[in-house]
């Protein structure tokens, strides 16, 4: 790989431009991914928030679901992107995610999230947010809201029930880029 990690943002539907902007601010090279062949040569992939039923349907049509299952790089999934990765969908993350677990839009909220290893909390924007449960033994909790996991890491996967792309705080994306570089260096061994 070159100096900058190459990151794809799944651009089927949802808040993909915000992720692209955050990653570019951190110096990554970002491409939009709509078809399986566009995954080639990428160090990481972001599956953004949006509607998980819409994203899954569009992914299946052109075989992106299988291509993502075989993708070796790091993956960041936020909100709907986390749902898409769980045991009941693509089966890459060892957990289950319940949709709209806090209720409809009038129950969407902002709150501070305790961030593992950092005294400064993350500001979480939770929009019709899901809840993660039945975390597998290898899943590490990196962020908590009222004792519940809202940011977790499962090996090369980073998953958030909230939307770090909607704030100017780049720490989640920064961590993801580190993970993409680690995954790339492991593969090149």
């Amino acid at each position: 790989m070159g100096d900058q990690p190459r990151i794809g943002v799944l651009a089927l539907q949802g808040a993909f431009r915000e992720h692209a902007r955050a990653l570019r601010r951190l110096g990554a090279e970002v491409v939009e991914v709509r078809l399986p062949e566009e995954l080639e040569g990428l160090d990481g992939l972001v599956i953004p928030g949006g509607e998980s039923t819409t994203i899954m349907r569009l992914a299946r049509i052109y075989g992106l679901d299988e291509a993502i299952q075989n993708f070796p790089g790091a993956i960041l999934g936020t909100c709907a992107g986390m749902i898409v990765l769980d045991r009941r969908h693509l089966g890459l993350a060892d957990l289950e995610v319940d949709r709209n677990a806090y209720g409809r839009q009038v129950w969407s909220f902002e709150a501070d999230v305790e961030f593992e290893g950092d005294e400064l909390p993350l500001h979480g924007v939770f929009i019709r947010a899901p809840r993660a449960r039945e975390l597998g033994p290898g899943v590490e909790v990196l962020g908590e809201l009222e004792g519940e996991p809202v940011l977790v890491r499962d090996d090369r996967l980073l998953l958030a029930t909230f939307h770090p792309e909607l704030t100017d705080d780049l720490r989640v994306h920064e961590l993801f880029l580190q993970m993409a570089e680690e995954a790339a260096s492991v593969r090149s061994l």
Partner: peptide, 21 residues
């Protein structure tokens, strides 16, 4: 502190609709 109905959660849901029908 939990805040509901902020401009950011209002505009944020619309961000999730993008590229959609």
């Amino acid at each position: 502190m939990t805040e509901y109905g902020t401009l950011r959660v209002k505009t944020g849901l619309a961000e999730m609709f993008k590229g959609g029908v």
